[in-house]
């Protein structure tokens, strides 16, 4: 088997506690099959995600970062996802600007009832990441 086939991307997924996190849970209890590449990190709201989290995830070796939250209008804190939409757009543009593949960062809206959508989002993301290979642009070098 070639090295390319062996490669499994590591995804850091920031999931909103009120929706996407429950959505991933639903995907699990519904026994929907999806790749096990994502490491979920539950956050209170997508609006609470600092762009620094994303940079830091890449810095510590993530191959892709997913931010997933409630659909517009469904935020538990009324306006958190509106704020996230702006911030994530900016960080996405900035990552792309310095020459990192735009497919390494993804944002999605997944509600608590959308287990199947969550599975699709992860599957698509993994499929898109595999051809890109390991992310070594922002990754911190191993310490000797």
């Amino acid at each position: 088997m070639s090295e390319q086939q062996d490669y499994e991307p590591r995804i850091v997924a920031f999931l909103c506690k009120w929706c996407s996190s429950a959505g991933s849970d639903l995907a699990g209890v519904s026994r929907i099959q999806y790749p096990a590449n994502a490491t979920p990190i539950t956050v209170p709201c997508t609006g609470a995600i600092s762009p620094m989290y994303i940079l830091s995830a890449f810095n510590k070796g993530a191959d892709g970062v997913l931010v997933s939250g409630c659909h517009i209008g469904d935020c538990h804190y009324i306006e958190g996802n509106f704020l996230a939409r702006r911030k994530m757009q900016l960080i996405m543009e900035l990552i792309e600007f310095i020459g990192v593949e735009p497919n390494r960062f993804r944002m999605s809206w997944v509600s608590a009832a959308e287990g199947a959508k969550f599975a699709t989002v992860i599957t698509d993301f993994v499929n898109d990441l595999k051809p890109l290979g390991p992310q070594d642009k922002l990754k911190r070098a191993e310490q000797a």
Partner: peptide
């Protein structure tokens, strides 16, 4: 420590990009 103080490429990127975000 979000990033290290060492002046290596990965840390410099994170520094300069964080700064750009903070100044947006």
């Amino acid at each position: 420590r979000w990033i290290e103080r060492s002046a290596t490429r990965s840390e410099n990127i994170t520094y300069l990009m964080t700064r750009a975000m903070h100044l947006a």
